[in-house]
Amino acid sequence: MGFISRGFRGRPRDEGVKLPPGQYLVHDFPVLSAGPTPRVPLDRWEFAIDTEDGKTHRWSWQELMALPSETPTVDLHCVTKWSKLGTAWKGVSLDTLFADVESSAEYALVYSYGGYTTNLPVEDLLDGKAWITYEFDGEELAPAHGGPARLLVPHLYLWKSAKWVQGIRLLNEDWPGFWETAGYHNYGDPWREQRYQGD
């Protein structure tokens, strides 16, 4: 008998990693698409926050770039079960964008170029939990990954981190978004494995 190979044990950084239930680790960055990739020229790009009183706050690309940026390094968890750890982003905190927004709305509907929507509680966008990102891994964010700008809400499943983000509508009642009206969970906490309605 020969010796028994211990086999490939994975990269050292994979050891001791704790993932949310049902997730597996990937090192590439899979692209999932629900439609054609929108191409938004930066001179026509804008981001808006629409309040429940009908007031709209707008930022052009230049105005977004002029705001103080942050460089969060976060773990991503996709509802299709892959997780990618330690991803490096650059963007503007939603706390910065909400600084002058007067609102008492509890719900947000995020909408994107191309028609995608996703909903989440306003409190999940604030207190350092969410960003409008425009760089990934030191490079401008590619259209396939949501560029020019993407919402990043890493504590929820990745479908909440809307690609090609165009705006956030603040609402007094919850308004389920694209996947939330097609069987996926309304909140989507990966650590509680809230994948589908009823989970």
Binding site: A34, G35, T80, W179, A182, G183
Partner: peptide
């Protein structure tokens, strides 16, 4: 048809 994940669109 786009997908299959998270769903077929």
């Amino acid at each position: 048809v786009y997908g299959p994940g998270p769903g077929m669109v």
